[in-house]
Design a protein around this nucleic acid. Sequence first.
DNA 1: ATCAAAATCACCCTAAAGTATGAGCTTAAT
DNA 2: ATTAAGCTCATACTTTAGGGTGATTTTGAT
Lengths: 154, 154
Amino acid sequence: MALSFWIKNRSVLLYSASLAALLFLIKWLEWRFIIVDYSFELYAGATAFIFTLLGVWLALKIAKPKTLVVEKHVLVKTNDFVFDAAALTRLGLSKREMEVLQLMADGLSNQDIAEKLFVSLNTIKTHSSKVFEKLEVQRRTQAVDKAKKLNLIP
Amino acid sequence: MALSFWIKNRSVLLYSASLAALLFLIKWLEWRFIIVDYSFELYAGATAFIFTLLGVWLALKIAKPKTLVVEKHVLVKTNDFVFDAAALTRLGLSKREMEVLQLMADGLSNQDIAEKLFVSLNTIKTHSSKVFEKLEVQRRTQAVDKAKKLNLIP
DNA sequence: ATCAAAATCACCCTAAAGTATGAGCTTAAT
DNA sequence: ATTAAGCTCATACTTTAGGGTGATTTTGAT
């Protein structure tokens, strides 16, 4: 508790202590008659100087650091394909249809796709027909081309 | 010249002027015998307080703002297709074959390509067959996929 | 529990794609 | 001039793709 208070207000406490110490110092010197002959202006100047420094130090410690935000534009190659979910929703392609579409884009024949997905060739034909309908194309090459342009597949 | 010097060092000049002004003020008050009875501690305290404030103000004015560099990632439509001439040479695709390949990639049927290039369907079949041979694939979708991966076409 | 969409499969038929072979013509290099 | 490569086209054939229709089963949401 006391420690955290010290840490949080260290600057203020040190400043107060410095102020007290300086006054004590001046008093002590006055009492000693050592520099009593010094001009008032010197006292004032020295005090002003010292406390200016203290003020500067205090300000630097306390003040929220001024942050100047500099935006550095970094060009990021968008190799990374960003899937257009909105387009998918709009076109209403089902999960299975997307699978078939992706495999078509990979150059697989309907027979290949059927084997890969463990379904019959006829099933793939049905799926691909629906894909063509929804993409409003007639051939698989058109479907792949359009799907890529629509960011449905990489 | 003088103006820019003023702008650059305004803070310091104002500080110096303030210091001088305060000393003059104190001297003037002393001369007037108005507050000559006030204690030395009061002078010191007031001076300390005022110049602390000045120091704080000075510091806040002078302090270099901490520059925080924020990397802003800008997605760039990377039309960074760099045609791989070496691959083309290696595979030995002719100009006409590249044309056909490109049109295949655009989703055109053999008949479409034939009409576009003002040649017969059979000619396109011959060309596409040679393309498949050279790309070592069996179907046009595979050819397109491979050609894209090889940076032969965008 | 019910209903709609999705997924599965079949059959038939047509269109398109792909394979194989041969051949005429043009062009660029040797 | 000869040659090789490229472009063109044809015929015949096989394979794959695509369209249309209908049906059953799964699944997800209300």
